[in-house]
Design a binder for these strands. Sequence first.
DNA 1: GACGGATAGGTGCATATGCACCTATCCGAT
DNA 2: ATCGGATAGGTGCATATGCACCTATCCGTC
Lengths: 138, 138
Amino acid sequence: MSDRPAESCTCSALRRATRALTAAYDAALKPAGLRVTQFALLRYLDRLGPIPVTRLAAEAALERTTMGRNLDPLKRRGLVAITPGAEDPRARIVSLTGAGREALAAATPYWREAQARINARVDPATVSAVAEALIAAS
Amino acid sequence: MSDRPAESCTCSALRRATRALTAAYDAALKPAGLRVTQFALLRYLDRLGPIPVTRLAAEAALERTTMGRNLDPLKRRGLVAITPGAEDPRARIVSLTGAGREALAAATPYWREAQARINARVDPATVSAVAEALIAAS
DNA sequence: GACGGATAGGTGCATATGCACCTATCCGAT
DNA sequence: ATCGGATAGGTGCATATGCACCTATCCGTC
């Protein structure tokens, strides 16, 4: 057991903040039956349209296999559809279903509420700047 | 598929930054055979001394059961020991073993290196401030 | 001393994350 | 036409995270 005040770990501090923030968003989205990760994924699909898994993963800066698995619960609930690519049969094209679009629309007000609550207390531009700087520095 | 530029999700941005930062720290700590979560846990134990799981979880702002499971790989590798509490037999007292102390010491230079690299590029005080503000706002 | 709420912890389940390794297909060079 | 590297994706494994629900023990009150 050491003495001396411990220098705080930048990474652990950020992980902790992310846990707290994720819990807040998840709680806000709970009535819509989505987690913030799932909501973000549906939003990507809405913005990008039908897209292969690997490109979707690149867009979200997620590991390819992670994206594959994150799609599973949405697939199971019928919010996204996965079809083989027309040109390249290896590709799996992910797209929003009607139910997915509805779920996204239903969840968006809850997300906006969470977003507004947080953004009112912490300047979102600052958060963005810090986040981008950390990504660049990593 | 909507048009209009998408307002970026504060939570997703932070999650993404945390993934990147965690990967950087994990890579830095790889020679020491620890992940940043595990390193942070060993550091807590070093600072706090033998401590029951629930209190350790509270210190780290982690869910109690999450802490229990995060201890598993460290337990398996003999870096921490878990003994029943002397006064309260329900309590499980977690403590650093000799091997745990050695692993912590061996990993610390790698952690410092990662910490220095990041802190040189992103002001750690700003990161701390943002992290704390987000925790308070959540 | 017995009862009942509070407290310490564990287990099952589900999601989130990434690595190592595998298969299948594509496509350019020969 | 074929061969070999590149590319799309999946699976197994391990960790990280938290919720719901369970047991065991403690302790104050009667």
